[in-house]
Design a protein around this nucleic acid. Structure first.
Lengths: 179, 179
DNA sequence: TATAATTTTCAGAAATTACTGAAACTTTAG
DNA sequence: CTAAAGTTTCAGTAATTTCTGAAAATTATA
């Protein structure tokens, strides 16, 4: 690893914990994203100075996120790994995975809670707030589904829209009102 | 705490770690969101069976996120706390805070790296990938800024748009092409 | 100003999470 | 079938994060 690559890999490792995977998994992914050719598990372990066992577990996790792909070189017995898809694919995967971990369980608990009728005043208030949270999380889920389904180029249009969102909403409002 | 409220508070605590704050901070916030009236630090500590010191630190953090507000009752020396703003405000705060923690540092590191010219083939490849990540993160930042600035009712329109986004984009495309 | 009420700080304990490395397992080649 | 090459597992250890509680600091009252 050149110093340039190393600085990125190490940084991504530190960030990793904030993005939902641990330091070494973050480093491994960064390394694979940035490297020109596929790497074997041993090469990864060596480049990052971490244990072979840890690499094995990390690769398993990255594969379960479908961020990393395993394949074989003919005449070589080792497994090789490379990062999978474009950066946009990665962003979609991370979004999806985080929704599953961070949103879905809460949504389902709140649904259960709202099935019971409130026992007193303060539970009634609580249920009101929970209903708000429920609606918000449902919208987040709907959006996230929509983004999953969207083709990369449409996604890209949407992304680049940026500060144009407001205007587009105005346009939409006008069109709706005409009907 | 009634069992209903307790189950939500405890769940939110577990989730907390995934949302960027620790278990007790999550519990404290959930309790305040769901409770009808403001609570003193001691009441919080007692309800959650955690130490007074921990509550003090947690409230400080929640205040720094501007999710919780402190105030005084006349003739009472204690500080009282209540959750601040609507659920939408909370979502905005969490979004903003996470962007600061998760996106901004990476963006700034990548910018630095891209200032250096690549030393060889493989660094050139690496820089290409970093450029992609850079563009993605910039778009994320732009969007997040936009969402910060957006009024709650516009935000709500956007949210509820849900699966309509695709259609709206089509409309926008047509309008743009007419020009 | 003294004292009582309350909050904050922070060193160390407890809990949690991540990592290592040796042993067990799997796969392929001869 | 056996040996060699490679991978995975997991118990134990290390590192990190969170929590406690007693002491220090702050604030209000008399």
């Amino acid at each position: 690893m050149t110093p340039m690559i190393e600085s990125f890999v190490m940084h991504f490792g530190e960030m990793g914990s904030r993005w939902g995977f641990n330091r070494t998994v973050g480093q491994m992914y960064a390394l694979l994203v940035v490297s020109d050719e596929a790497l074997s598990a041993n090469e990864i372990a060596e480049a990052l100075s971490i244990s072979r066992g840890n690499v094995s577990m990390g690769l398993k996790e990255l594969q379960s996120w479908r961020l990393v792909q395993q394949f074989h070189k003919p005449g070589d017995r080792k497994d090789y790994f490379q990062s999978l898809g474009s950066i946009w694919d990665m962003a979609q995967k991370v979004l999806e995975e985080r929704r599953k971990r961070e949103v879905d369980p809460t949504l389902s608990l709140i649904r259960d809670i709202l099935l019971d009728s409130p026992a007193n005043e303060s539970e009634e208030y609580a249920q009101q707030r929970l209903t708000e949270i429920h609606d918000l999380l449902e919208n987040v889920t709907k959006w996230s589904d929509e983004l999953q389904r969207m083709s990369p180029d449409k996604l890209s249009t949407l992304m680049k829209l940026g500060s144009g969102v407001g205007k587009v909403l105005d346009i939409k409002d006008k069109l709706m009102n005409q009907k």
